[in-house]
């Protein structure tokens, strides 16, 4: 895997997909994110790392406005995708989220069949005009999530009956099915065993050929394995952002170094 990544290391030529400028997030009285500015590139895996409670998940949820569902969250600053401000009043979060998909920490398949889980997004967004197209989207998505071979014979079985790793890949397939441009992953492997984790990590590496992937992880090894760019968060600040290899081998900020060497976190 390491050698595969070696020739994909060059990400500078990809253009910027998401750009944030001076983002502040408040949870009630709590200042959760302090002035974060960064540019996330297309067709790249970007990892957010940092000790728990550092705000990396909060920041991730700003990128597709999932924080809207929390009453007390307040966001300032600017976040734009393809140059369009996502907090512009004209933006419908529903459309935004179709473009910026999300995979959650705990696998959360709906209590429906595997097929219906994946078909849910295309159905609500009207991506398929007939049953054949829908079948095709479902199959493609399951293939892209590298789970097709395991479930193709039991598409009508409930999604909740799969193992944890399969459930998470099903959730990835579900997110892929709405043909997003960005995939946000909030610690997607934290509830999985090592084998399932390896499968999902492999999948993430494949996904970057089509999508801009942003992954929050508490595991530095995982960030090193799957990402090209890494941002380190600490107590709501984004401390350092750069090429993954640079961050891990030659951190600029003493806090990053302390975290990487295991002295904070």
């Amino acid at each position: 895997m390491k050698d595969v990544r070696a020739d994909e290391r060059d990400t500078t030529m990809n253009d910027v997909k998401i750009e944030t400028k001076g983002v502040q997030v408040y949870y009630g009285e709590n200042h959760a994110i302090k002035d974060v500015s960064l540019a996330i590139k297309d067709k790249t895996v970007t990892a957010f790392i940092g000790p728990s409670g550092c705000g990396k998940s909060t920041f991730l949820r700003c990128l597709n406005r999932m924080n809207d569902t929390i009453d007390i969250a307040r966001i300032e600053g600017e976040i734009s995708i393809d140059g369009e401000d996502i907090y512009d009043p004209r933006v419908d979060p529903v459309q935004l989220r179709a473009k910026v998909g999300m995979v959650f920490q705990k696998p959360n398949p709906f209590p429906k069949s595997i097929f219906d889980n994946v078909a849910y997004g295309p159905k609500i967004h009207g991506l398929a005009s007939n049953k054949a197209e829908l079948d095709e989207i479902v199959e493609t998505s399951l293939r892209r999530a590298a789970i097709w071979d395991e479930v193709k014979d039991r598409l009508q079985a409930p999604g909740t009956g799969l193992s944890g790793g399969q459930q998470q890949r099903l959730c990835i397939a579900r997110a892929v099915a709405t043909s997003p441009e960005v995939l946000l992953m909030d610690e997607p492997c934290s509830a999985l065993d090592p084998i399932a984790t390896a499968q999902v990590e492999e999948l993430i590496s494949e996904l970057r050929t089509r999508y801009s992937v942003v992954i929050v992880t508490h595991s530095m090894q995982q960030a090193a394995r799957v990402s090209q760019k890494t941002a380190f968060f600490h107590l709501g600040d984004m401390v350092e952002y750069g090429e993954t290899d640079d961050i891990f081998t030659n951190p600029q900020d003493p806090r990053t170094e302390k975290y990487i060497t295991g002295r904070i976190g």
Partner: peptide
């Protein structure tokens, strides 16, 4: 569980779609 709602909203479903197609069936 809230994670059900998050999953649906994260896919770009409206609240009504989430309730009708995910929450109520669940």
């Amino acid at each position: 569980p809230q994670s059900m709602r998050d999953g649906s909203l994260g896919l770009g479903a409206t609240k009504a779609e989430t309730i009708r197609q995910v929450v109520v069936p669940a």
